[in-house]
Amino acid sequence: MNGHRVALAAPRRLLTLTIDGREVKVPEGSTLLQACRQVGIDTPTLCYLENLTPVNVCRVCVVELEGSRTLVPACSRKAENGMVVSSDSERVRASRKLVLEFLASSVDLSLCAPEVSAWMSRYGADPARFGSPEPGNVDRDRTRPGEHSPVSQDGAATVAQPPKLDNDTYVRDYSRCILCYKCVEACGSDAQNTFAIAVAGRGFEARISTEFDVGLPDSACVYCGNCIGVCPTGALMFKSEFEMRQAGTWAPERQSVTTTICPYCGVGCNLELHVQDNSIVKVTSPLDHDVTLGHLCVKGRFGYRFVQSRE
């Protein structure tokens, strides 16, 4: 389903580049990721999403660009005429493998989309090479910048920590957080502009945080759910889904998704109703519809409950 943008942009020049020996033509302004996808090269991404500004931090999409000292992130590097790109060279495979190992050895990736484990096996990633996972640092949120956490001689440091349950709407389980910045962007200037969360701390202790780590109810959060909508790892989750998962009743295979229009104000936001057993269990919005770009407000996200409250 597409929104239509009628104001016509100026026609864009076509650029020619070579990817894995194949000639590819893309419109000026395209990224290498778009070029790869255009010719069907499956490129892993974690921090990239169509409706957000690329932050190019996960580095799982890196490709080799002739003439460049280092690998370059496909998600944000703009295509140029004459570029020669390898998306599957030994250097690329080695870096993607290590990046996936770095993540999997430090973060709980068990709720990620299935592609992530497919990439892990494609690149032969084995996170156990770094040793067994260490219990996390319970004081992560209060770590001073530059403060050194004692280093383990036996295992691999992780970001393991208990989920944050400070309200009845969201669950924040940062043991699953890969720090892709998507939630910060969706809460911030890419969509909601509420800025309830930001990255705090630095290095391995960098984390998504409210000011002074106050609970969400004391923060600026307005519960639009746009952070949850973009989270790729299940670190952010609606409490309702969290509870169903805990009760073992969350069953995506039994869920249908129907697109309709929000019953509240007159903006006309597209809602995707995820229905399980004739009950709405989650609401999302299509990323490619130009009214919402995938983002909703608190009413669109949670206001459905009245239809299920009738006797």
Partner: peptide
């Protein structure tokens, strides 16, 4: 509930007519 238990259209503030669709079985009697 016309927005999730019935088929039809609504029009938004930018005069955009969009489809509403049936996602749920309505409760008995409705």
């Amino acid at each position: 509930a016309s927005w999730c238990e019935a088929e039809g259209t609504v029009t938004s503030s930018e005069r955009r007519v969009q489809r509403v669709r049936r996602a749920l079985e309505p409760p008995e009697g409705a």
